[in-house]
Design a protein around this nucleic acid. Structure first.
Lengths: 100, 100
DNA sequence: AAAATACATGAATATATGTTCATATATTTA
DNA sequence: TAAATATATGAACATATATTCATGTATTTT
């Protein structure tokens, strides 16, 4: 007698993907990633200017993405320069935008 | 004199991407998409069994993903069969999982 | 050293998302 | 037609995410 093979899913395998998706699922954040995706780092002021986002709010998003390992931050004088920590995120964003 | 070209971002262009990302950024939802990605539709019961998710909670996620245009639903007798509406989502999920 | 600039942080609040439980609805089966 | 099965929905609540505003801190400029 042939058993029907049940497909069981280990939800845990999606933990990390969901975690990153949550960290990116926001217009401001997608804008930041896009601005940083040309390899060049940008200061908070530059990002603010380009995205037209309130200083405090942008800072919140940047700090959080940094805490979640998506962005890097380097201080230089009065400025903080943000950049993308792992280039895979750019690839991912590319797919997302393409598939849409 | 050379002007520095400011890069302005139109956040609105990311609205749709962010909308879909939010709709997917959850372990249960990623599990559902994965289970449905083999072209075959599955009933709520089958999904429930495979994902090990409470009926009501799964229903909530399914209904929402359906409302957001990610899933289709077809009733047949006592069952409701869900499937992926737009195959691009699978491609997207593939990228996400790969890049990670 | 005081003022200005660039950014972060905390508190308060608003809004969105996820979860549970009880109950409703549709369909089939007995 | 009553009971069983499969799924949806509403209410209440918990938690997470986003937003605003005031203020703190580090650095530079005057």
């Amino acid at each position: 007698m042939l058993e029907i093979k049940e497909q069981k899913i280990d939800k845990a395998q999606f933990e990390e993907a969901a975690y990153i998706l949550k960290a990116l699922a926001n217009e401001t954040r997608l804008s930041v990633i896009t601005l940083l995706s040309d390899e060049k780092e940008k200061s908070v002021s530059e990002l603010m200017e380009a995205i037209d986002c309130e200083q405090s709010l942008l800072s919140y998003h940047l700090t959080d993405m940094r805490a979640k390992g998506i962005l890097n931050c380097r201080r230089s004088g009065k400025n903080c320069f943000y950049s993308i920590r792992n280039r895979r995120v750019i690839q991912m964003l590319g797919c997302i935008v393409d598939c849409n």
